[in-house]
Amino acid sequence: MRASPLQKLIIAILGWGAALLMFFPVAWMVLTSFKTEINAIHSPPLLIFHPTLANYGHVIHLGDYIGALTNSVVISVGATILGLIIGIPAAYAMAFFPNRWTKDLMLWMLSTKMMPAVGVLMPIYLLCQRSGLLDTQTGLILVMMLSNLPIIVWMLYTFFKEIPGDIIEASRMDGAGPLAQLRVVLLPLAGPGIASTALLSIILSWNEAFWSINLTATNAAPLTAFIATFSAPEGLFWAKLSAASTLAVAPILIFGWATQRQLVRGLTFGAVK
C-alpha cells in the first residue's frame, strides 16, 4: 500500500514529535550545563543566557573524570567480552541442539530480568564483600556481565536461529566439529548480529547506575557513579550535575552515533527478511 501525501505528513509529524520528545531532556541537560547555577534554577527557564564553561572546569577539577571514564570503558567492554564468551556457546547450543528444557531455560533466564535489581542487592553485596570484589573493576564486570547475559543470549539465539540448519549440517557432513562450526560457519554468518549484541551490551553496561553506585566507592567508580557524586548532601547543583552528565553520556552518544548503522541493522535483522 502506498501512503498518501497527507498520511506521509502525519507520519512525519508523529516521528519528529517522538524524536524531539526523547531528545528534549538531553538537549536541556546540555543547555543547562553551560549555565551558571543561578541561571540554572531560574524560573521561567532561560533560553538566552551567557554560556559558561565554569561547570566543566569545576567538574573535571573536582572529580576524577578521567578515572571514571577509564573505569566505564574497562567495565562495559570487559563485561561485554566476557558476556559474549559465555553467551555465544550458550546460544549456539540452544539454537542448534535444543532439547525439551531449552524453552524453559530461556524463559527462566529472561525472568531474572523481570525482578528489580534491588531485590538481590543484599546477597550480591555480601558476595562481593566476602570475595573482596567490592569497589573493584572485576567485581563490577562480573555483575554487569551477569545482568546483561540473558539479553545477550536471547539476541544471539535469535541471530543464530536465522542461519539455516542445513548449512550447519552441511558443515558437519564436511567434517566440522563444534568449534570449527562456530569459527568457520557461525561467527562469519552471524557477524552483524554479534556486533549489534556487543554494542547493545556496551551501551547497557555504560548506562547502568544501580550496581555501579552500590558496589563501588572511589577505585572502580564508573561515570554513572561519578554523576551521582554531584547530587551531594550539600544540595543539588543543577548546572554542575548537568555538566557531569553531559561528560558521562558524551562518549557513549558519539559511540552510538558512529555505530548506528550497525546497531539498527542488527536490531531489525530478521524483521525485514
Binding site: P164, D166, I167, E169, A170, R172, M173, G175, L189
Partner: peptide, 20 residues
Amino acid sequence: VPPDKRGLAMVFQSYALYPH
C-alpha cells in the same frame, strides 16, 4: 560413527552452501 567419518557426501534441497 559421526557423519564426516562415514565417508558419505550429502546434497541438500536448499543447497546449504556457505554464503560467505
